[in-house]
Simulated assay, not measured.
Amino acid sequence: MSEAFAYSRIPVADYLRAERTADVRHEYVDGEVFAMVGASRRHNHIGGNLYIALRAAADPRGCAVYSNDVKVRVEAANAFYYPDLVVTCAAGDDDPYVVHAPSIIVEILSDSTEAIDRREKRLNYQRLPSLTDLLLVAQDERRIDHYRRGPGGWDHVVYTGGAVVPLEGLGAALRLEAVYAGSGTAQPM
Rank of each mutant, 00 (worst) to 15 (best):
V12F: 10
A39I: 12
A77H: 01
N44V: 00
Y159H: 15
Y97D: 14
R127D: 10
E75F: 02
T88I: 13
Y81S: 08
A22I: 04
Y82A: 08
S8A: 12
R17I: 08
I108A: 02
M36H: 11
M36K: 14
M189V: 12
L54D: 03
A76I: 12
A181D: 14
Y81F: 15
N68M: 14
T21P: 12
Y147K: 06
A58T: 02
Y125K: 05
K121S: 08
R17S: 15
E27K: 04
G171S: 00
E177W: 01
H156D: 05
G169D: 06
E27I: 00
A77Q: 01
D93F: 12
G150C: 10
G48M: 07
D59F: 13
G62R: 00
L50E: 01
G152C: 08
H156N: 03
E177C: 05
A6M: 05
S130D: 05
V158H: 02
S110W: 03
R142A: 03
E75L: 04
A13N: 07
N68H: 12
G62E: 01
V157T: 12
S183I: 09
I105R: 01
V165Y: 09
R118V: 10
L134H: 13
H146D: 10
E32H: 05
N124F: 01
V24A: 14
D95I: 08
A77F: 00
V33F: 06
R119N: 14
P11A: 11
T185H: 02
L134K: 09
A22C: 13
R148N: 11
L174A: 06
T185C: 06
G152F: 11
T21E: 15
G48W: 03
Y7A: 11
E27M: 03
V158P: 03
Y159W: 07
D30W: 07
A58S: 04
A53S: 08
A76H: 11
L50N: 01
V87E: 09
Y82E: 09
I10H: 02
A35W: 06
V72Y: 06
A178E: 13
L134Q: 14
E114A: 15
R127L: 14
